[in-house]
């Protein structure tokens, strides 16, 4: 098992910033009073002149990042996912998107991972919002190993980007020898009967469910998506054409989420197969631990199982 699985996502973030920041002097790290929550203090200590704690002022942080980018810097600006996105959406749309600034916006504890911070801190819509910004690349690494491999690719891509990050330890999906391409989804389990396309914390749940489905004679193929936009529809289409049924699983609202993006792509390409979605219906978050929130919002393995069975039977 990869050593990286013992590491927290925020440590992979900070260590990569330091590692690449050593060579690339344009890397600048911005925080809005959550340095201690993101562990970027280590970067501040290594490169104090390239670290800016903007205080609790996310909209200003995004504007400042845009200005830095216009002068050739590569700013990474982080906050909890609702504050990094919906709190400063117009600043993102105008100062980062419209101007095509190379700003990396980092949103942490996405979806139900906000847990006991509750509804005000729970972004169930950030992927939808950020995908709406023209040309914005929207990425959510599914585990620490893949994030470590994605980091240099993220750095090399000069587009505005939203990086949605689990903050702590992640359920292991990939091993050190995995091939991770920023713009390609990964088939993480081969199967023939139904395709399960998953992202975020749902990839691990999908894999576990696939094993249960196998016991009942349903052989599921699981695709792990880390880039929502541009979405790797080639990999998804290839799988769906083979299996003839598909469900999506995401830690996000169904409205404007990955499932709807997949459905639209399938329809547009005349791929008509039974289709279902696992995600969060039209509601706000609330306090609770991850398990409780997954239960009440329909993100459990049982929910995936039931949906997969229902869709498979429609074939």
């Amino acid at each position: 098992m990869s050593e990286l699985h013992k590491k927290e996502m925020r440590a992979v973030y900070t260590d990569n910033l330091i590692k690449y920041g050593k060579k690339n002097k344009n890397i600048v790290v911005l925080e809005a009073d959550l340095m201690n929550c993101h562990g970027t203090k280590k970067f501040r200590d290594a490169y104090p002149t390239r670290f800016i704690n903007c205080g609790i002022a996310e909209a200003n942080m995004i504007g400042v990042a845009a200005g830095l980018a216009s002068c050739g810097k590569i700013p990474f600006a982080a906050s909890f996912s609702p504050f990094a996105t919906r709190r400063c959406y117009d600043q993102i749309a105008v100062s980062v998107g419209y101007t095509k600034m190379n700003v990396k916006i980092v949103g942490t504890d996405p979806g139900i991972l906000a847990q006991n911070n509750g509804g005000t801190h729970m972004s169930l819509e950030d992927v939808a919002l950020m995908c709406q910004v023209p040309e914005m690349v929207v990425v959510e690494p599914v585990d620490t190993v893949s994030f470590d491999k994605l980091f240099p690719q993220i750095l090399a891509c000069d587009k505005p980007m939203y990086i949605r990050l689990q903050r702590k330890t992640t359920a292991p999906i990939f091993e050190d020898d995995a091939k991770i391409d920023l713009f390609k989804a990964n088939v993480v389990r081969k199967g023939t009967d139904i395709t399960i396309v998953a992202s975020s914390i749902m990839v691990h749940r999908a894999l576990t469910t696939a094993r249960s489905l196998a016991e009942f004679g349903i052989d599921a193929e699981v695709i792990s998506v880390h880039t929502y936009k541009p979405l790797d529809t080639d990999t998804i289409f290839r799988s769906v054409k083979k299996t003839g049924a598909v469900i999506s699983c995401e830690n996000h609202h169904l409205i404007g989420g990955m499932g709807q993006m997949i459905a639209t792509a399938l329809m547009e390409n005349d791929i008509r197969v039974p289709f279902g979605m696992i995600g969060i219906s039209d509601r706000y978050g609330e306090v609770g631990n991850e398990k409780y929130l997954a239960d009440i919002m329909g993100l459990t393995e049982q929910d995936i199982y039931d949906k997969a069975e229902e869709i498979y039977k429609k074939k």
């Binding site: 006991n116 509750g118 005000t120 306090v287 609770g288 631990n289």
Partner: peptide, 12 residues
């Protein structure tokens, strides 16, 4: 802050 509570961490 317990699961299902009416007293969340931030005032509601």
């Amino acid at each position: 802050n317990q699961n299902g509570t009416n007293l969340p961490s931030h005032c509601d």
